[in-house]
């Protein structure tokens, strides 16, 4: 039950080149889309964006270890990369950012990054931080009742772990040994509040001990370590051994959201220094060193993904906005006036 550390070296041998390249591609695809969202915001075409830049590795690692459409996800707003690996497309998320009627997350009703798509078992998520963790428990409980071997991913920032639902969810999932993967994406900040003012101890994973479940700390910028941690936790859950609390130490390489300016509460030096911890850059260097990816491969991948992205943006921009009176629809199954 002790907190375990995973290191990249131990895992490398077990991942084949194809998986590593797929992982890199997934991370890059999310990063390019995320950067495009910022551009749209700064151009005044998208009123809001909240980014996953710096968080991609752990999300991709988990999503690649899930069975899309069978397993479940109750994500939070930084999980763009997760949604893409599970099957949603850059166009889907662009439709949301541009508030279009065909946005599969919400039909343009919610702010962007409030993910949800029934086709891929990504549940609808709202804004209140933490509520999704309990939904994940209920999903897993239903699976248990039907004797299914599906697992449920759920995630939250370290700030969200201060709220009551975090405790209630871990307590419930651990008590009933439910197949839930609790992933804390710890970037050290909740908007402007640093972790030291959020909690008394540095590592959220240590709290697993109180629930009698494994707590795993992983370097969220180490893609291979993330992949291995994800695989272990998913296997555990699928075999009926209960939940795992995984804490990925990540960096938030942007302001909290497009409405925030982190220079008000972080020094330029700190912001600059964190860029060196960017998991995408680190992974690329690692893969080149391993001979899995050449600079040429990476550039080709990037060009291909940008092409997909440009097309997606074009299509999303051409898509219609919702009809005003459609605001009245879908309050209840049978719409009441």
């Amino acid at each position: 039950m002790a907190v375990t550390k995973t290191t990249a070296s131990r895992k490398q041998a077990t991942l084949d080149a194809e998986t590593l390249r797929a992982m890199y591609r997934n991370m890059l695809r999310s990063r390019l889309l995320d950067e495009r969202m910022w551009v749209l915001n700064r151009q005044g075409r998208a009123p809001f964006w909240i980014s996953g830049i710096g968080h991609e590795a752990v999300q991709v690692a988990f999503a690649m270890n899930l069975r899309s459409g069978e397993d479940w996800a109750a994500p939070y707003y930084r999980d763009l990369a997760l949604t893409l690996v599970l099957g949603m497309t850059p166009k889907d998320q662009l439709l949301s950012v541009l508030q279009r009627a065909d946005d599969p997350n919400s039909g343009g009703r919610q702010m962007p990054a409030h993910y949800g798509c029934r086709r891929y078992n990504i549940i609808t998520t709202g804004s209140p931080v933490g509520t999704q963790l309990l939904h994940a428990c209920g999903i897993a409980l239903a699976a248990r009742m039907r004797g299914e071997d599906t697992v449920t991913f759920t995630s939250i920032g370290e700030g969200g772990t201060s709220g009551g639902d975090f405790h209630e969810a871990l307590n419930f999932a651990a008590t009933h040994k439910l197949a839930v993967l609790f992933v804390v994406e710890n970037n050290g900040f909740a908007i402007s509040v640093p972790w030291e003012k959020q909690m008394p101890t540095r590592d959220v994973a240590d709290r697993a001990k109180a629930y009698g479940i494994p707590g795993v700390k992983v370097d969220g910028g180490d893609a291979i370590a993330c992949y291995k941690a994800a695989r272990e936790a998913v296997e555990r859950a699928r075999h009926g051994d209960g939940p795992t609390l995984i804490e990925a130490k990540v960096v938030r390489l942007t302001s909290h959201s497009s409405d925030d300016d982190q220079r008000r509460y972080r020094t330029a030096e700190v912001i600059e220094a964190e860029k060196a911890q960017d998991g995408l850059l680190r992974f690329r260097a690692q893969l080149e060193e391993l001979g899995v990816l050449t600079a040429g491969d990476a550039d080709e991948m990037r060009a291909e993904l940008l092409l997909e992205l440009d097309k997606a943006q074009e299509e999303a921009e051409a898509a219609p906005l919702p009809e005003p009176e459609s605001a009245l629809l879908h309050v209840l199954a049978e719409d009441l006036r």
């Binding site: 479940w72 309990l134 428990c137 999903i139």
Partner: peptide
């Protein structure tokens, strides 16, 4: 919150 939150998740899962 657990009682209702878990019920919501179970409802979404059929």
């Amino acid at each position: 919150s657990c009682i209702v939150g878990v019920a919501i998740g179970a409802a979404m899962n059929g």
